[in-house]
Write a protein that binds this DNA or RNA. Structure first.
Lengths: 190, 190
DNA sequence: AACGTAGTACTACAGACGGAGTGGTGTCAA
DNA sequence: TTGACACCACTCCGTCTGTAGTACTACGTT
């Protein structure tokens, strides 16, 4: 098991791209090597087996989907009114949709987690933490809406992103924009 | 291309189970033959190639997820008040969650459709029809809530099912029940 | 400055698996 | 007799995992 952290991270990021493009079964050592443009056999040195590969990707994927620290800080300061909150949600949906492969990879991991207990444990922990963090931020902002409202908004926006990424012809960009607006409004006026 | 419709249907239903269990890359002629307990080579006679197999499954999966005609008729008659509507939504979520493999298979198909234009076209058509039908039913029921409210409810319940099926430890059954209640209430009181 | 050692990058390969596709045989009914 | 179909056997091919082993590099020791 090799140690070089940059290389490991590069391999995991490559694995995310492979996951999104080829699906869970397509995530193989060879494919990761090729995507990361390293000699064949390298991934095999960094991950004990495919299970380990999935688990490590599951541990990292969420960090890549979340906004960076600066954005979070900026967001936390600025959320005082509904307009700003709505803007932030649009930003969220756009950012996640823009990191196309990241979100698709997460979906692949979710499906794969029905077959891999270790992966399921990692994902459950990460996502639980994210939901709790969102509830916390919202509570701190002082805006109306209890934790149920936050969770419902989380659910709605997630599937909206799924629709946008997997079947983009179901809703137009215009409709998606309006749906985000409506969802946020509903969440705050409950 | 063989014609026997019962056999074809049995093969497609077997394919749904394989999809849910093994993922999209695991959906092969061999696997379908084995799942349907027919001699190897049979699926290969019924589907021109893997693309065709995916497309035909995509055409059928939605029929299996939707309630049968009788239930729809019963539902359409009975939806006069919020209580009954809420009951129906619980039924919906439970029925879809119960046909576990069907829903997981649909998710696999969605992800696969990013790679297969024909499949994407079939799924887009089916799902568009379903959403429109839901909007129509709701409008006919006379209950409050416009089409946006129906779509938002659709989005929310979909991801709730995803959470329940892929990472069952995120929300307890109790929480899921309450979230369905809250989502329906919010949808009708907008 | 020469040498040794550890850690890592890279290569090569064995062994195995599984899939697509094809051709052929038997059977039954019109 | 002819045609549609179920069933079966077999081949070719690509790719995967896991491992063994070599090459390179950096660094510490003498």
């Amino acid at each position: 098991m090799r140690k070089n952290p940059e290389r490991r991270q590069a391999l995991i990021d490559a694995a995310i791209e492979v996951l999104a493009r080829e699906g869970a079964r397509g995530l193989t050592f060879r494919a990761v090597d090729a995507e990361a443009a390293v000699p064949p056999g390298t991934a095999s040195n960094y991950f004990a087996n495919r299970d380990d590969l999935f688990t490590q990707v599951g541990g990292r994927i969420y960090e890549r989907l979340l906004p960076d620290e600066a954005t979070i800080a900026r967001g936390r300061e600025g959320v005082q009114d509904e307009t700003r909150y709505t803007e932030l949600m649009h930003e969220l949906v756009d950012r996640v949709s823009a990191f196309n492969s990241g979100y698709l990879a997460l979906l692949e991991l979710r499906l794969e987690s029905t077959r891999r207990p270790e992966l399921r444990a990692v994902l459950t922990k990460r996502i639980r933490e994210d939901i709790d963090a969102n509830i916390g931020y919202h509570a701190a902002s002082g805006l109306p809406g209890d934790s149920t409202a936050v969770v419902l908004l989380y659910l709605t926006l997630n599937w909206l992103i799924v629709e946008r990424l997997t079947l983009p012809d179901i809703f137009t960009e215009q409709e998606i924009h309006e749906l985000v607006d409506a969802a946020v409004r509903r969440s705050l006026n409950a």
